[in-house]
Design a protein around this nucleic acid. Structure first.
Lengths: 156, 156
DNA sequence: ACTGAAATCGCGTCAAC
DNA sequence: GTTGACGCGATTTCAGT
């Protein structure tokens, strides 16, 4: 899917596109000191190689009435190990569950979830996640403050 | 900064822009069944109200030679409580630290970090984060698998 | 006031050098 | 890797409701 190395200009392009995903090709070309067609070809190559996986608008959760963000750790009961893939599917189907990672350490899964308020968060956890057969333990860490908003990947 | 309610069309726009942040205005207008200028005005309003906080290219971390993602919990020593803001600043300054949240529960901060490999992760943790005066405890959960990639906010 | 039609201008994109 | 050309899309203006 990729493998070919990125040179300094590719890195610069990625840096800019992570900062402003809607920049026009000519402005981007100017920033990275390339002619527009050159720049265009590079961007397309990065997209085709899967280096750039897409473009997203960042939406303020509060505007969508999602006042609560939380990280939720989930464990799977030993008896349910054979059904993990199903359980993953059920977790993934919840729209409020934004990310799911399997992690090393005390818990099996770490989820990032959003909810309208603490009451809906609680509902999500107890009425939906904990109802999934095989889910043994659900613990949540409610986000109180965002000290650093999701930053761009370091390009170095 | 916001407050005025979003109607069904605004929601649809946000849904589409979260999926494809680079969609052209005419295509977006077609998808939400609006004339182009109408659609354009709405998008601009959403941006100006801060509902849309920006646009980002999603870059595959592996392509930037960042093979490891981890969540790191950090605690602050009781003696250092008065210096939390400074400590936050020092944490924030690390480019590999992508997100910082203060959370309820056993730890004070939860960070999302990336690194080249486990060796550089270890280096980041022991040589940089743990060297910050006042940081009392650093635990990491290394991400093994991405079960659900960062999803769009549910729009309801 | 709000909508959409039209008009303009600049950009994306391709082809040829 | 650059220049030039073409067509489409972004953005504004304006007239009609």
């Amino acid at each position: 899917m990729e493998s070919a190395k990125l040179d300094a200009i590719d890195c610069k392009i990625l840096e800019v596109l992570q900062r402003d995903g809607r920049i026009s090709n000519v402005d981007l070309a100017a920033e990275v000191q390339l002619s527009a067609p050159q720049c265009f070809r590079r961007v397309r190559a990065l997209e085709e190689r899967g280096v750039v996986r897409g473009y997203r608008a960042l939406v303020q959760p509060a505007a969508l009435d999602l006042g609560v963000t939380a990280f939720v750790s989930v464990n799977i009961a030993a008896e349910a190990f054979e059904r993990v893939r199903d359980i993953e599917g059920l977790l993934r189907d919840q729209p409020e569950v934004l990310e799911i990672h399997t992690v090393s350490g005390d818990c099996d899964y770490l989820l990032k979830v959003v909810a309208r308020d603490l009451r809906s968060l609680s509902q999500l956890l107890t009425d939906r996640l904990m109802q999934i057969k095989g889910v043994a333990d659900v613990r949540s860490m409610v986000c109180l403050e965002e000290v650093k908003a999701p930053a761009a990947l370091p390009v170095r």
